[in-house]
Design a protein around this nucleic acid. Structure first.
Lengths: 211, 211, 211, 211
DNA sequence: TATGAATGAGTGTTCATTCAT
DNA sequence: AATGAATGAACACTCATTCAT
């Protein structure tokens, strides 16, 4: 009788998940400093006290949100199955995936920006991130090697630089699309503009690695 | 002797300038939400009241700081004198300049990030920005045209995409160097790392535009 | 023992009531502009934050205080039971009641003065006031009609003018008793002075309506 | 040569007068607490420092404004020349004058209200006010005596009560016209409403004093 | 597990007043 | 006589966090 009519509450896992989802939105929208704990609680339809119960503090909550964000993108990348196609195709697939992921998960970019404003203070404390990052880095190592062997990639490319560049040309466009739309006097957020950008990016990367 | 140790006071222009400089640092360090008006006042050795006297509000001050930042980079770009050299050299010069400017003025990046978090709310109100942006955009238009005429650039390149890409590969690296250093397990801020990155970027852009 | 000395805490209703009572005093004493939120909090032995939690803002709090004040006097008037006596007696009763109410609730006058300084900005937003005012206005309509039927009141009296006049001769005396005491060089606040005034007012109204 | 092109400035008397006029408006509009010294300075097109130079402080300025206000109405009353007509006519003339004065000088009412909120703190310090008030009070003494002698006024009327009542029925209506318009669901500020009120007031006073 | 009430230290902003010229 | 710059105390309001149940 006690819990029967309150299935929403009294369920630790769900409450925690709702808080996390709400926090992700709030942190993405306003950054760490601008985010409001009250707002997170309300959005999560959870009592504010629960946030402290489960996560300890606003900053700790931010760290968990951030870790989850990285975990999510890295997991998705692992599922790309890039090994069963020519290296050049695999690379294009990765470029398109990265762009699509940023588009579908705009919080990722804002969270990372916030974290960099804080000089990666929270990420440094994480034990999870280095682990999952290693796999991601290894992926590009192998891909570039394979491309060289296949004769389509040039030799001597630094995998980290390539990785960063792939991220950069998508990430920068999206995070700066608001100021960019003013500077370039053009709606960078329009569907056609987005479509044009990804094609341009694919071309950029292909030319970058081409043998 | 009387005024020697108080040269700072009773000079509206200087006080305003000190406030602006202090605000630039504070906003760059903590973002709009995280910045503290008290801190700005203290750093500027000015009375907090003066900030409101000269700038109206924290947000208005942010807008002025942002405008000044854009004005500064656009002014510096205009001084590059790119017309008196082959287009490919001019492009490389621009890439190197952009990178150097970001490095020397790290606030620029953080301010722009902050502004994008706020969806360019302040830039939209500015009358100055569209004006100075137009010139900047025109510069690339002409450069690409000339490169094509000189036979070194390929045809059909979108100047805006090129501009964005030049900014992206520098900006992203720098704004994300803290999380990046963890993800890639490598000190991206080390002088050698910076040197390597700019060379990589020059290569990237050259390959992008090459005929 | 546990809760005995802290009965005030952890009771939303009581806290709210304490804030309202404190606000009434503070607003009455200093007006809207002169009132201090800190002072209200202290007087209410409540945290300042609670004021904003329950009432939103200083102005909103003022509006609630004002509404309560009007509600209180209108409720008290409804209890007068003026129907079971000759109209002239009823009118006198109302005059005496109004005076007594002003005397016992000096905040009412000051609050209304404050609100008029602000051109009824807050009252305009209220949905409650028009409702309760209608009943009050109707009361005088009926009373004057009855007085005419009973042959003691003259015909053609405007109920609103009578109402205003009854209020005026009491309200003005009390709100201006401080400057009045100087101008007339006489202590208008002395008990005898008050007693004399109400008798004079009864006479004034009786002569005003007499057939 | 020095002052020729600056006739506005460098004239102590005029600056003082402009400050006084501006202060009257500002105090009338916002009360003592709500009034802003900056606003007064701006309205007077005077330097803020001048206010302190001439008047010492915000409160002292308020006192001067208040004294001037009382001085003005009392002076105007003295000019009414009530002796050369029947007492009843003189009384009516006074009632109409008082109403007209309030209407034409709405600041008077608001200033007096403000002063009463402060329990006549400033008026108490004035040496001027008791003097000029005495004459005003004496006027009614004589008028009532004469009315009795002429056989139109009843005996035993307290001049102070009559004075207060004449003021009350005009003052209250005007000061409370904003809340009144809501309570009585009628525009008390309309020209017709004002015209109706003064006639009602004349009737009220005539009936009050009638033999 | 969950909650609504409560808090103290800020946080942006405003104000009357004084300083230096 | 007049001014623009500057100030410190206060003000309305907010926030992350804890208490009591």
């Amino acid at each position: 009788m006690a819990t029967s009519d309150k299935t929403k509450t009294r369920d630790a896992g769900k409450t925690k998940a709702r808080i996390l989802a709400a926090a992700k939105k709030e942190f993405a929208k306003h950054g760490l400093a601008g985010a409001r704990v009250d707002e997170i609680a309300e959005r999560a339809k959870a009592n504010k006290r629960m946030i402290y119960h489960y996560f300890g503090s606003k900053e700790d909550l931010f760290q968990v949100v951030l870790e989850e964000a990285y975990l999510d993108i890295r997991t998705a990348e692992q599922k790309l199955d890039l090994d069963n196609m020519p290296a050049m195709d695999a690379l294009e697939k990765l470029v398109r995936f990265t762009w699509a992921y940023y588009l579908k998960n705009p919080e990722f970019i804002t969270l990372v920006n916030s974290e960099n404003l804080h000089r990666a203070r929270h990420l440094k404390k994480s034990k999870l991130i280095p682990e999952i990052s290693a796999k991601f880095v290894g992926m590009m190592d192998e891909l570039l090697d394979r491309g060289v062997r296949e004769g389509t990639f040039r030799l001597g490319l630094d995998p980290t630089q390539v990785n960063i560049t792939i991220a950069a040309i998508g990430y920068y466009y999206l995070t700066n699309r608001f100021t960019g739309s003013i500077v370039f006097d053009r709606d960078l957020t329009a569907p056609e503009a987005l479509a044009a950008r990804i094609e341009f990016n694919v071309e950029t990367i292909k030319r970058l690695v081409a043998a």
